[in-house]
């Protein structure tokens, strides 16, 4: 059973993946996200940190046994268990398919759309409109897949659900207002099922779905 | 042992990952990349294809048993074997770490730098200069990691080497001229070791390292 420390800044959806995986596996995970254990922008620039994590990026994991990992998907995989990872080559390949899908198809348009509403990036009308169209395509693919399924792979929660749900957190909290998500009921049903699992709730707390699409925060 | 068909356009580095994995595992893989088996832009728009692969993207894999996968990393994982995937939770997490590293840290700057030299995209001086700096950082991380290692994870070739090497193919063929790659000898040694493995050579043929950095193809 893994035991170690996860370095991150607070409220990092990439770190949530690893924290939720640890809730399922029972791995003993300490989260270092605030002083004095960890200060983003300082601790991750120290020689000691860079020696273990040469890019200085977070989330970063250091096992009590000294085993170090960077890249959030790898950390969540390691802190999970065989059920979460997919117990057969077909299931583990399908888990990896949705993990890749989250990073390559969801994160770029979700960030383009949401970041300006959080005031952390300039608003660009054309880019936002394109991002909305890309998000609709993603929701369409997921809605079709979830038409006959409760979870993305097999009959139980896996790293596929944890990864895709965490990559959509900001979307559902900030901009997917009821009228926008109305054509994709299977996805909202699936998302609400996931975030209400006790292992998700312990990490995420109460996840309130967006009532009114946030506009960019000038 | 998996057996099936890989749909792609010719010379697709993302498809090479799956093809090389199959060389190691012995999976029976048919590649459909030209007419009449597959025409990119036509076959992947037919209802039959979209029914199995809703995004219509390639590479896409269909097993003789009907099992379908999209996302190139998932296909390579499925067509590989336990040695390539990493036989322990630590090794499989490290493999996933480098697979994620390739997609998040290598592919974006490599595409930005190389696409204009292939005529795929407009040249943008500022973006290209930034991409060169990002590639230097990537090469630095890899060079340090490979200082004491022959391969990225453990003592043998894994999906980490296959994925990272394939994501760097265009870089080494098009733009990493001797003076640019001189500060990173461990990476070039590792790359040449990989592409000279018989399983890589069967798929890639002879890989000639760039002699003169290609400029954009106006």
């Amino acid at each position: 059973m893994a035991a170690g420390t996860l370095y991150t800044y607070p409220e990092n959806w990439r770190a949530f993946k690893a924290q939720i995986a640890a809730q399922y596996s029972g791995a003993a995970l300490k989260v270092a996200s605030s002083a004095p254990a960890f200060t983003f922008g300082q601790t991750n620039r120290t020689p000691a940190f860079l020696n273990n994590f040469p890019q200085g990026k977070v989330p970063a994991y250091q096992g009590d046994d000294g085993f170090c990992l960077f890249e959030s998907n790898a950390i969540a995989h390691y802190l999970g268990n065989d059920v979460l990872r997919g117990a057969t080559p077909q299931a583990s390949a399908q888990v990896l398919q949705w993990v890749s899908f989250a990073d390559s198809e969801i994160v770029p348009p979700a960030s383009t759309w949401v970041f300006p509403t959080l005031g952390i990036m300039q608003f660009n009308k054309q880019a936002t409109e394109q991002a909305k169209e890309d998000v609709k395509k993603v929701l369409g693919v997921l809605n079709q897949h979830l038409n006959t399924r409760t979870f993305l792979v097999g009959e139980r929660v896996s790293l596929a659900d944890i990864t895709v749900a965490c990559s959509m957190l900001w979307l559902y909290k900030q901009v997917l207002e009821p009228s926008f998500r109305q054509p994709y009921p299977n996805v909202t049903r699936w998302f609400v099922t996931c975030v209400n699992q006790p292992q998700f709730k312990t990490v995420l707390g109460e996840v309130k779905l967006c009532e009114k699409m946030a506009q960019f925060d000038a | 042992m998996a057996a099936g068909t890989l749909y792609t356009y010719p010379e697709n580095w993302r498809a090479f990952k799956a093809q090389i994995a199959a060389q190691y595992s012995g999976a029976a893989l048919k590649v459909a990349s030209s007419a009449p088996a597959f025409t990119f832009g036509q076959t992947n728009r037919t209802p039959a294809f979209l029914n199995n692969f809703p995004q219509g993207k390639v590479p896409a894999y269909q097993g003789d048993d009907g099992f379908c996968l999209f996302e190139s990393n998932a296909i390579a994982h499925y067509l590989g074997n336990d040695v390539l995937r990493g036989a322990t939770p630590q090794a499989s997490a490290q493999v996933l770490q480098w697979v994620s590293f390739a997609d998040s840290e290598i592919v974006p700057p490599a595409s930005t730098w190389v696409f204009p030299t292939l005529g795929i995209m407009q040249f943008n001086k500022q973006a290209t200069e930034q991409a060169k700096e990002d590639v230097k950082k990537v090469l630095g991380v890899l060079n340090q990691h490979l200082n004491t290692r022959t391969f990225l994870v453990g003592e043998r070739v894994s999906l980490a080497d296959i994925t990272v090497a394939c994501s760097m193919l265009w870089l080494y063929k098009q733009v990493l001229e001797p003076s640019f790659r001189q500060p990173y000898p461990n990476v070039t040694r590792w790359f040449v070791t990989c592409v000279n493995q018989p399983q890589f050579k069967t798929v890639l043929g002879e890989v000639k390292l760039c002699e003169k950095m290609a400029q954009f193809d106006a």
Partner: peptide, 30 residues
């Protein structure tokens, strides 16, 4: 803390690159 996600490296241009790559290889295949 709200600012931290802004320091993440996101490939905002990805759909533009995917589109360009698709068009290029469709031309080649065509």
């Amino acid at each position: 803390a709200v600012n931290f996600p802004g320091q993440e490296k996101i490939w905002f241009e990805k759909s533009r690159y995917d589109e360009a790559e698709r068009r290029f290889f469709e031309r080649v295949a065509g």
